[in-house]
């Protein structure tokens, strides 16, 4: 058997995107499906979406990342084509325990992207480099 969960997750996210595009709402059934697949983090991720905590950051060179403002006030950088988040939950739940597919920040990014609820910001290439290299702000 190939991996089923990522395929299911993709399918549901696709449905979310479609539903939101058509009605600007997500039906109850889909929300529950999301919750079934991703578990309790969905609630937290949706809260992040509600708070418009995800920013799509682009630079003139064409690079693109997402920054998620976590509930603690920390900014987490998530990537367009890679499931990675520097948050502790990701390190523990996803990498170490292999309990979940992703953390709430990545899910919030995917959901915001699907629903088109990302904020946008343009930065210089220099700043993008700093973001990508995870340079700590002094």
């Amino acid at each position: 058997m190939t991996l089923v969960l990522p395929a299911v997750a993709k399918e549901i996210l696709g449905d979310v995107k479609k539903a939101y595009e058509e009605t600007s709402k997500i039906p109850d059934e889909l929300l529950l499906a999301l919750k079934f697949v991703f578990g309790p983090i969905v609630l937290l991720a949706l809260d992040l979406v509600d708070q418009r905590a995800v920013t799509n950051v682009t630079s003139p060179s064409g690079r693109k990342v997402f920054q998620v403002l976590g509930s603690s006030g920390r900014l987490y950088t998530c990537y367009v084509a890679c499931l990675y988040c520097p948050c502790p939950a990701f390190a523990f739940s996803v990498l170490q325990r292999n309990d979940g597919l992703l953390c709430k920040h990545i899910l919030a990014t995917l959901l915001s992207e699907a629903m088109g609820l990302c904020q946008t910001a343009a930065v210089s290439d220099q700043q993008m480099t700093e973001i990508l290299l995870e340079k700590e702000e002094d």
């Binding site: 991996l3 990522p6 997750a9 993709k10 084509a81 890679c82």
Partner: peptide, 15 residues
């Protein structure tokens, strides 16, 4: 099963 790859398998841009 082994953990799913970190490569974004459900890239919404695909479709």
């Amino acid at each position: 099963k082994p953990p799913p790859p970190l490569l974004l398998a459900f890239n919404l841009m695909e479709n």
